[in-house]
Design a protein around this nucleic acid. Structure first.
Lengths: 203, 203
DNA sequence: CAGCGTTTGGACCGTCAGGTCCATTAGGCT
DNA sequence: AGCCTAATGGACCTGACGGTCCAAACGCTG
């Protein structure tokens, strides 16, 4: 059967419900622990609806990767567009730590988490995840580049590398936070990232 | 049935083969994609042998977490005990990057990878993973503490935080390496970690 | 060599997963 | 209203999975 993209408003809503339900289940149980029956129950959609909108489970998971990316970036709206100042970066860092505290250090990063589960099993999913992380990183890199142009960072600061490094500290910090159930791990990691960014300050 | 720990040499060898086989399969396919039949085939062990030595799959996975921890730490033998000098740290960083290059940036960190797959599903596994990462981190922290005592780090350097941060950069760098299939991501992350460590130098 | 616990083989079972199928209903368009 | 496609319900199929069971082989000890 070929996958049809919903052509009516109702169809689109159903498709959306399915993706949302799957994303939520995956986020708190992991990919392997989510069956299509679970999805159907949560989304109030029957078996045939799932296969009406997605060719198979893999395709549904790809949609989940995309939706998760959107959700993560969306949740940081108002922060990601202001990574072009020390204050903006600090606000971002603080919000990330605060979020982990609220969530009691559970779940880690939704995207990073998917990475660990899908990267070695599904090349297309891996690419989609790389893309999501890339979009995230781009916000930071562009902010840093603006800071450099404004003279707040040294002219020879490598903003691409700084952005990569900051993402690594963020993802690693989230992993430690998740494993140790302690948001302070992320705090410490981001403090380290800040040290590196400050080391690239214009003198 | 209660789990018996092997009491003869042959039994221990079988048990060991089972754990090894499982660890290898898990490392390159992920937990969810490994069935007990796969394990049996690879370990040349029958169904009943698996259940003779392990109560269920979860218990087998716990053994895998431990074995993986040992393997990861073992693979770094000769490096982890010399993290008390800048040269030793650099050697360690270089070896980590080199390893990723050899493995074509596949698989990420075996322990970190398990974390993403098991942390939210199996509390005991999460604890075991936390323990493994902790042992790893301890080597670094102790090395840094020695450097501080020798005056190579500032007297007020917080070696515990430096170690946490370095582990985060390492894990995050490995995640980016895996997702982007590019070992340079780890290189950049560890360079950042080195910047932070250097910032704690005695002046 | 006799006896006994350990180790092993592999058939078997119930469950649940992903995926297929077809009949029915709903809804937009002319 | 009538038609055509989209949307839906849910029974059903096949296979694989984790887990159980029992009998046979092994190997150490007396």
């Amino acid at each position: 059967m070929l996958t049809r993209s919903a052509s009516t408003a109702k169809g689109r809503a159903t498709r959306e419900r399915i993706v949302q339900a799957t994303a939520e289940l995956v986020a708190d149980r992991g990919v392997a622990a989510v069956s299509l029956d679970d999805v159907g129950r949560r989304a109030r959609a029957s078996r045939s609806q799932l296969y009406h909108y997605f060719a198979d489970k893999a395709e549904l998971l790809h949609a989940v990767v995309d939706a998760t990316t959107e959700a993560v970036l969306g949740a940081q709206d108002g922060l990601l567009d202001h990574l072009d100042s020390w204050a903006g970066i600090d606000r971002w860092f603080n919000a990330l730590v605060e979020l982990q505290r609220e969530r009691q250090a559970r779940g880690g990063c939704p995207i990073g988490s998917l990475a660990g589960q899908l990267a070695e099993r599904d090349p297309r999913a891996r690419a989609a995840i790389a893309d999501g992380l890339g979009r995230w990183e781009t916000h930071l890199r562009e902010g840093l580049t603006q800071m450099r142009e404004r003279g707040e960072l040294s002219p020879d600061a490598d903003t691409a590398k700084l952005a990569i490094f900051t993402m690594a500290a963020l993802q690693g910090g989230l992993l430690l936070t998740q494993v140790r159930r302690d948001p302070e791990q992320l705090r410490i990691s981001l403090d380290g990232a800040r040290t590196v960014l400050h080391a690239a300050r214009a003198r």
